[in-house]
């Protein structure tokens, strides 16, 4: 099965951020294809490399980066939602005159068209949110 995943909630705040990861990982391990993981609303906060959770807790951001590296996952952060919430890559920093970037490895920032395309291309779009 070819899945697309949408993540609508932020890390540590909401179970949806964990469930999305666990579902994605389980699907990949079962041999399914993940066309794309799209981060929207507060879900874009899953993509900041500045996260520093306590050492005895899971690292939600690193977990995604590692999964992306292992399976060549396409992790896409919505640009409009990211701009509102201060998730920035090098290009966005330049474009908007910011002096820092914070996008974690394996993530990229792009438009909502990527979400619609994922809905078109995948056999199932699975939304994780409230």
């Amino acid at each position: 099965m070819k899945f697309a995943i949408q993540v609508n909630e932020g890390p540590y705040q909401h179970q949806a951020a964990d469930s999305a990861y666990q579902f994605t990982k389980a699907a990949l391990e079962k041999g399914h294809e993940i066309f794309r993981v799209f981060f929207y609303h507060d879900g874009v906060n899953n993509a900041t490399k500045l996260t520093t959770p306590p050492q005895d807790d899971r690292n939600i951001v690193n977990r995604w980066s590692e999964l992306a590296a292992q399976y060549d996952l396409d992790l896409v952060v919505c640009v409009a939602a990211a701009q509102r919430r201060g998730i920035v890559d090098e290009g966005e920093a330049k474009r908007n005159g910011k002096d820092a970037e914070n996008i974690a490895p394996g993530f990229r920032i792009s438009g909502l068209g990527q979400l619609v395309e994922a809905g078109i291309q995948a056999e199932r779009l699975v939304v994780f949110g409230d």
């Binding site: 929207y40 438009g111 909502l112 068209g113 979400l115 619609v116 395309e117 809905g119 078109i120």
Partner: peptide
Amino acid sequence: VVLIAAAF
């Protein structure tokens, strides 16, 4: 998202 989906 609705507006983008419509554009597609």
